[in-house]
Write a protein that binds this DNA or RNA. Structure first.
Lengths: 106, 106
DNA sequence: TTATTAGTTCACAAATCTATGAATTATCGG
DNA sequence: CCGATAATTCATAGATTTGTGAACTAATAA
């Protein structure tokens, strides 16, 4: 595989983390699966919107869906997703502590 | 801080990972700082483009800049950025192995 | 001072992403 | 079959991100 291609695939997977609702979903699924309706109830908003975000996350390979009867259960495809997410959160917290974000958002 | 706000800030930091060139830069800086010109030489493309991506990464707090004489040296703000990035790469590799990406990209 | 090197900033068009609401599909219970 | 529940798909308008080239700033060298 060409070198540039791996960067694009890699970035594509990382892009799946780049939205507040998607981050919240990853947070919610850290301890196990939840069904669509439960996620919707917690996050709020339109079901069509949530559905599209979950679909994107599944396509990028960070979520897994399990269909059971009427309900769709979503879970993280790997614990590594949650770990990566937590690391980035720590980076954020460290930056916030240094007040960097205050300066940058003026 | 409101709960929704942390998700947005968190997503914002993660967004900084969501671009092929920026992933490549993180890769390059894993073992230490590099100056702008060196990065440009490796990644290719327009300097204005690279400059904007580096600036974005700095604003989001994942890069640090050190100005020395004529040159600007960039480095990762934390080893955690590289670790998170590697985790996501592993997630990608695992998915590729399972051939998920082939199916999804048809 | 003038030229050169290093890099940033700016404006703008093109591409991509996001939210919304309506229409649609699928499953189950009666 | 019929109605209800669960969720996806679709079209589209609006917002954000990206790449490009020109103009600009800062530090050094001649």
């Amino acid at each position: 595989m060409k070198d540039g291609k791996i960067f694009e695939l890699h970035a594509d997977v990382c892009k799946a983390l780049g939205h507040a609702l998607r981050i919240q979903v990853i947070d919610l699924l850290q301890d196990g699966e939840l069904c669509f309706t439960d996620i919707l109830e917690i996050t709020g908003g339109l079901k069509s919107n949530l559905s599209q975000h979950l679909s994107l996350m599944s396509k990028k390979g960070i979520l897994t869906v399990r269909r059971q009867g009427q309900c769709n259960y979503y879970s993280l495809s790997s614990k590594k997703v949650a770990r990566a997410c937590r690391l980035m959160r720590e980076v954020l917290i460290e930056n916030l502590k240094q007040g960097q974000s205050l300066l940058e958002n003026l």
